[in-house]
Design a protein around this nucleic acid. Structure first.
Lengths: 246, 246
DNA sequence: CAGTGGTCTAGACCACTTC
DNA sequence: AAGTGGTCTAGACCACTGG
């Protein structure tokens, strides 16, 4: 059994979380089996019950454990072990298991932006936006056409470095510039491909697909990204997992 | 200032949460303003700091507050004040602000179900499913065609009572039978209306729209519902809000 | 520096489940 | 009755932010 290090700068509850996470991921704790009780964990790891409870409570919130009053604390099924934060990468992406995917930069420019864009990003009159036009590919085949808008003064670094990473993850680039999405509002509707989309995606005009709009906000509620995209539905499906309650 | 009742069977931290929620919703605490500090709340409500922290931590998880180390605890913007549990009602619904919406029961039957259905609900050979065919309407206009499948022995009560509430919320009915969705997996793709859908929804065949499949699981990971639906995209948009990180 | 939230302790009593 | 998680207390020290 691993031990917690009091000399470690990481908090004890966090170390305990990591230990339990690892045991779950490694399969030492199978789904629907009980983990040691709180008093047992207190004794095993020589910490107070409040510390144990902080670790367990966070793991419950992250969907790795569930509690039953009077019975014990149990390991969730893998399907439930879906950390909300993992949704980040899924939210703008397709189910593409086993595919090499990337986002190919077509255009990067500084513009004023349409009224829709300005509304979504809550811009002042004089503010501009960085506009990125990208073609998302999986195994080198184009699967979606996407246009991203970022509020300008704040995304200056992203704009300057966009061409360096012309074929990478926009969220990763935004992260290095201190832009961290916290919630994302997405809207979908069924639509058919425009001429430009049909050409870039190599499908016929009027192919039915998914038209998607997504606005991301940071922790304080400031908008940091607005994206419009078209995914031909004949090629891929969009998938999302929602946590519904506690 | 309201006071917490120790005679109240509800826990103190829960009462404190409700008080703070009400002050936020009522607008007494504007977005981005600081709420009283933890020691202040301890003094005001005569509870320990651990109790205050439990209330605040849960409100942070629910997206009503955010904390900044060394600065204080602040009220989130309304857009962030989206309780995950509120997503329940949104997840299967359209953006229909100001619309009277309902689900009109067309067919309720006990069947074996297709292989897709049986796979999603992880059924044994001898198990059956309740199949509900519904037309979702907003302001009496049909907006979506939906087929719901529930695992049978468990949903016997829903089956018996389906006709009583032929025009209501399926989730509400499931709730009274102890079936509470905890996570939902949804997949979307763009598609065009079938003949039956076109007829019921009063649109032309091949109208582009959203084809949706959703499987709901309870807290223990047991599947409790599988739904397929078609939403003509020309009529309404599908909207979803994701919590991305902490 | 004072004030904030972050972590932690060592207890206590209660409600629920199981036997 | 014994064991589980649920709630609560009254402290403590630390790390971070601001003036």
């Amino acid at each position: 059994m691993p031990t917690l290090e009091r000399s470690n700068p990481l908090p004890l509850y966090y170390q305990l979380k990591e230990v339990l996470k690892q045991q779950i991921r490694a399969g030492h704790l199978a789904p629907h089996t009980a983990i040691p009780s709180e008093p047992e964990l207190v004794a095993q790891y020589h910490v107070s019950r409040a510390t144990v409870r902080q670790a367990l409570t966070e793991l419950v919130h992250e969907g790795l454990l569930y509690r039953q009053h009077g019975r014990g604390t149990f390991v969730c099924e893998p399907r439930v072990q879906q950390n909300i934060s993992e949704l980040t990468s899924f939210s703008n992406d397709l189910s593409r298991r086993g595919k090499r995917s990337s986002g190919l930069l077509i255009v990067s420019e500084l513009v004023r932006g349409s009224q829709t864009v300005r509304d979504q990003l809550r811009l002042m009159d004089e503010e501009q936006v960085v506009r990125l036009e990208r073609l998302r590919t999986a195994d080198d085949a184009p699967i979606a056409y996407e246009v991203d808008y970022l509020p300008y003064p704040r995304s200056a670094g992203v704009y300057q470095r966009a061409k360096e990473v012309a074929d990478g993850s926009l969220y990763a680039l935004m992260g290095t510039e201190g832009m961290h999405p916290y919630i994302a509002e997405q809207s979908f509707r069924g639509d058919v491909a425009t001429e430009r989309e049909a050409e870039l995606l190599r499908v016929s005009v009027n192919t039915p697909g998914l038209r998607l709009a997504c606005t991301s906000f940071d922790e304080t509620g400031a908008p940091i990204e607005y994206t419009e995209a078209f995914y031909p539905g004949s090629l891929y499906e969009f998938q999302v997992t929602l946590r519904v309650g506690r």
